[in-house]
Amino acid sequence: MSELVLHDDELDEDCYRVRLFLSLLGLEARRVAVDVVPGGEQDSPGFRAVSPAGLLPVLRIDGQMVCGAGGALLALAHGRPEWLPEARAAFARVAHWLQFAGGPLRATLLMRRACLFGGVGDEQSARRRAAVGALRIMEDHLAHRRLEGGTWFVGDGPTVADIALFPAAALCRDWGEEYSAYPALRRWVRAVRGLPGFVTMPGIPDYG
Protein backbone atom coordinates (compact mmCIF):
# COMPACT_ATOMS: atom_id res chain seq x y z
CA MET A 1 0.00 0.00 0.00
CA SER A 2 1.43 3.39 -0.96
CA GLU A 3 1.37 6.27 1.50
CA LEU A 4 -2.07 7.09 2.94
CA VAL A 5 -2.99 10.79 2.97
CA LEU A 6 -6.00 12.22 4.82
CA HIS A 7 -7.33 15.72 4.16
CA ASP A 8 -8.81 16.29 7.55
CA ASP A 9 -10.56 18.70 9.93
CA GLU A 10 -9.99 17.87 13.59
CA LEU A 11 -13.45 19.11 14.65
CA ASP A 12 -15.39 17.34 11.90
CA GLU A 13 -17.06 14.08 12.82
CA ASP A 14 -16.88 12.72 9.27
CA CYS A 15 -13.12 13.11 9.41
CA TYR A 16 -13.15 11.50 12.85
CA ARG A 17 -14.92 8.43 11.42
CA VAL A 18 -11.93 7.82 9.17
CA ARG A 19 -9.28 8.74 11.77
CA LEU A 20 -10.94 6.29 14.17
CA PHE A 21 -11.02 3.49 11.60
CA LEU A 22 -7.41 4.10 10.59
CA SER A 23 -6.38 3.87 14.24
CA LEU A 24 -8.39 0.68 14.84
CA LEU A 25 -6.70 -0.83 11.78
CA GLY A 26 -3.29 0.25 13.06
CA LEU A 27 -2.68 2.40 9.96
CA GLU A 28 -0.99 5.80 9.81
CA ALA A 29 -1.97 8.48 7.32
CA ARG A 30 -0.21 11.74 6.60
CA ARG A 31 -2.72 14.37 7.64
CA VAL A 32 -3.35 17.57 5.71
CA ALA A 33 -5.38 20.00 7.84
CA VAL A 34 -8.34 21.73 6.18
CA ASP A 35 -9.45 24.94 7.91
CA VAL A 36 -13.25 24.64 7.81
CA VAL A 37 -14.12 26.83 10.83
CA PRO A 38 -13.50 29.71 10.55
CA GLY A 39 -11.53 29.52 7.29
CA GLY A 40 -14.14 27.98 4.99
CA GLU A 41 -11.28 26.31 3.17
CA GLN A 42 -13.52 23.47 1.97
CA ASP A 43 -14.92 25.92 -0.59
CA SER A 44 -11.56 27.24 -1.77
CA PRO A 45 -10.47 26.52 -5.35
CA GLY A 46 -7.46 24.64 -4.04
CA PHE A 47 -9.53 22.20 -2.00
CA ARG A 48 -12.25 21.91 -4.66
CA ALA A 49 -9.55 20.74 -7.03
CA VAL A 50 -9.04 17.81 -4.63
CA SER A 51 -12.70 17.32 -3.61
CA PRO A 52 -15.00 18.72 -6.31
CA ALA A 53 -18.09 18.74 -4.07
CA GLY A 54 -16.19 20.06 -1.06
CA LEU A 55 -16.70 16.79 0.82
CA LEU A 56 -14.51 16.03 3.81
CA PRO A 57 -12.52 13.99 4.51
CA VAL A 58 -10.50 13.05 1.44
CA LEU A 59 -8.46 9.87 1.66
CA ARG A 60 -5.69 9.12 -0.79
CA ILE A 61 -5.31 5.33 -0.94
CA ASP A 62 -3.30 3.39 -3.53
CA GLY A 63 -2.92 6.64 -5.45
CA GLN A 64 -6.69 7.13 -5.61
CA MET A 65 -8.64 10.01 -4.02
CA VAL A 66 -11.83 9.01 -2.16
CA CYS A 67 -14.06 11.90 -1.04
CA GLY A 68 -16.42 11.63 1.92
CA ALA A 69 -16.48 9.41 5.01
CA GLY A 70 -18.67 6.65 3.58
CA GLY A 71 -16.43 6.10 0.56
CA ALA A 72 -13.23 6.34 2.57
CA LEU A 73 -14.46 3.81 5.15
CA LEU A 74 -15.44 1.37 2.40
CA ALA A 75 -12.08 1.76 0.68
CA LEU A 76 -10.28 1.02 3.95
CA ALA A 77 -12.57 -1.93 4.80
CA HIS A 78 -12.18 -3.53 1.38
CA GLY A 79 -10.45 -6.92 1.65
CA ARG A 80 -10.91 -7.06 5.45
CA PRO A 81 -13.81 -9.48 5.95
CA GLU A 82 -13.79 -9.01 9.72
CA TRP A 83 -14.84 -5.38 9.14
CA LEU A 84 -16.80 -5.83 5.90
CA PRO A 85 -18.35 -9.32 5.67
CA GLU A 86 -18.23 -11.08 2.32
CA ALA A 87 -21.38 -13.20 2.67
CA ARG A 88 -24.13 -11.33 0.86
CA ALA A 89 -26.68 -11.25 3.70
CA ALA A 90 -24.19 -9.89 6.25
CA PHE A 91 -22.76 -7.51 3.64
CA ALA A 92 -26.31 -6.28 2.98
CA ARG A 93 -26.86 -5.55 6.67
CA VAL A 94 -23.64 -3.54 6.84
CA ALA A 95 -24.61 -1.71 3.63
CA HIS A 96 -27.99 -0.89 5.17
CA TRP A 97 -26.37 0.86 8.14
CA LEU A 98 -23.74 2.62 6.01
CA GLN A 99 -26.59 4.07 3.94
CA PHE A 100 -28.37 5.11 7.14
CA ALA A 101 -25.19 6.77 8.46
CA GLY A 102 -24.86 8.78 5.25
CA GLY A 103 -28.60 9.53 5.04
CA PRO A 104 -31.12 10.02 7.88
CA LEU A 105 -28.38 10.13 10.52
CA ARG A 106 -26.99 13.31 8.89
CA ALA A 107 -29.66 15.16 10.88
CA THR A 108 -27.61 14.62 14.04
CA LEU A 109 -24.51 16.07 12.40
CA LEU A 110 -26.46 19.10 11.17
CA MET A 111 -27.94 19.60 14.64
CA ARG A 112 -24.51 19.47 16.22
CA ARG A 113 -23.04 21.92 13.72
CA ALA A 114 -25.96 24.30 14.26
CA CYS A 115 -25.51 24.15 18.03
CA LEU A 116 -21.70 24.44 18.03
CA PHE A 117 -21.08 26.79 15.13
CA GLY A 118 -24.45 28.25 14.14
CA GLY A 119 -24.87 30.23 17.32
CA VAL A 120 -28.63 29.75 17.48
CA GLY A 121 -30.71 27.50 19.69
CA ASP A 122 -32.52 24.79 17.83
CA GLU A 123 -34.72 23.43 20.56
CA GLN A 124 -37.82 22.13 18.88
CA SER A 125 -37.03 22.34 15.21
CA ALA A 126 -37.94 19.75 12.61
CA ARG A 127 -34.22 19.10 12.34
CA ARG A 128 -33.94 18.23 16.02
CA ARG A 129 -36.91 15.90 15.79
CA ALA A 130 -35.41 14.15 12.79
CA ALA A 131 -32.10 13.84 14.65
CA VAL A 132 -33.78 12.33 17.73
CA GLY A 133 -35.74 10.03 15.43
CA ALA A 134 -32.51 8.81 13.85
CA LEU A 135 -30.85 8.13 17.21
CA ARG A 136 -33.94 6.20 18.26
CA ILE A 137 -33.66 3.93 15.23
CA MET A 138 -30.17 3.01 16.44
CA GLU A 139 -31.33 2.66 20.04
CA ASP A 140 -34.24 0.40 19.07
CA HIS A 141 -32.02 -1.79 16.91
CA LEU A 142 -29.43 -2.22 19.66
CA ALA A 143 -32.14 -2.92 22.28
CA HIS A 144 -33.33 -5.79 20.09
CA ARG A 145 -29.79 -6.98 19.36
CA ARG A 146 -29.13 -7.22 23.07
CA LEU A 147 -32.10 -9.53 23.62
CA GLU A 148 -30.31 -12.10 21.48
CA GLY A 149 -26.95 -11.43 23.14
CA GLY A 150 -25.59 -9.13 20.40
CA THR A 151 -23.40 -6.11 21.14
CA TRP A 152 -22.75 -4.79 17.64
CA PHE A 153 -24.96 -3.52 14.83
CA VAL A 154 -24.27 -6.53 12.60
CA GLY A 155 -22.99 -9.96 13.59
CA ASP A 156 -20.72 -11.01 16.43
CA GLY A 157 -18.00 -8.38 16.12
CA PRO A 158 -17.56 -4.73 15.21
CA THR A 159 -17.91 -3.89 11.51
CA VAL A 160 -17.36 -0.75 9.49
CA ALA A 161 -21.05 -0.01 10.15
CA ASP A 162 -20.32 0.51 13.86
CA ILE A 163 -17.53 2.93 12.96
CA ALA A 164 -19.75 4.90 10.56
CA LEU A 165 -22.49 5.19 13.20
CA PHE A 166 -20.36 5.82 16.27
CA PRO A 167 -19.74 9.60 16.22
CA ALA A 168 -23.44 10.48 16.03
CA ALA A 169 -24.07 8.66 19.31
CA ALA A 170 -20.85 9.66 21.03
CA LEU A 171 -21.37 13.37 20.25
CA CYS A 172 -25.11 13.70 20.90
CA ARG A 173 -24.53 15.62 24.13
CA ASP A 174 -23.17 18.47 22.02
CA TRP A 175 -26.71 19.16 20.87
CA GLY A 176 -28.44 18.42 24.15
CA GLU A 177 -29.30 14.72 24.04
CA GLU A 178 -28.31 12.79 27.16
CA TYR A 179 -27.27 9.16 27.24
CA SER A 180 -29.80 8.54 29.99
CA ALA A 181 -32.49 8.50 27.27
CA TYR A 182 -30.52 5.90 25.26
CA PRO A 183 -29.34 3.06 27.53
CA ALA A 184 -28.63 0.67 24.63
CA LEU A 185 -26.56 3.31 22.82
CA ARG A 186 -24.67 4.01 26.02
CA ARG A 187 -23.68 0.34 26.36
CA TRP A 188 -22.61 0.17 22.71
CA VAL A 189 -20.58 3.40 22.98
CA ARG A 190 -18.72 1.77 25.88
CA ALA A 191 -18.06 -1.30 23.74
CA VAL A 192 -16.65 0.81 20.88
CA ARG A 193 -14.53 2.76 23.36
CA GLY A 194 -13.05 -0.54 24.53
CA LEU A 195 -11.76 -1.55 21.07
CA PRO A 196 -7.95 -1.74 20.79
CA GLY A 197 -6.70 1.40 19.06
CA PHE A 198 -9.75 3.53 19.95
CA VAL A 199 -9.10 7.27 19.73
CA THR A 200 -11.28 10.25 20.69
CA MET A 201 -12.01 13.59 19.07
CA PRO A 202 -12.88 16.94 20.69
CA GLY A 203 -16.26 16.42 22.39
CA ILE A 204 -15.64 12.77 23.27
CA PRO A 205 -14.08 12.50 26.74
CA ASP A 206 -10.68 10.89 27.08
CA TYR A 207 -10.51 9.24 30.51
CA GLY A 208 -6.73 9.06 30.35
Binding site: R106, A107, A126, R129, A130, G133, R136
Partner: peptide
Protein backbone atom coordinates in the same frame (compact mmCIF):
# COMPACT_ATOMS: atom_id res chain seq x y z
CA UNK B 1 -44.72 14.87 19.78
CA UNK B 2 -43.46 13.29 16.58
CA UNK B 3 -39.87 12.18 16.04
CA UNK B 4 -39.63 10.98 12.48
CA UNK B 5 -36.20 10.33 11.03
CA UNK B 6 -35.44 11.27 7.47
CA UNK B 7 -37.90 14.11 7.01
CA UNK B 8 -35.37 16.91 6.67
CA UNK B 9 -32.15 17.13 4.72
Amino acid sequence: QVFLAGVVA
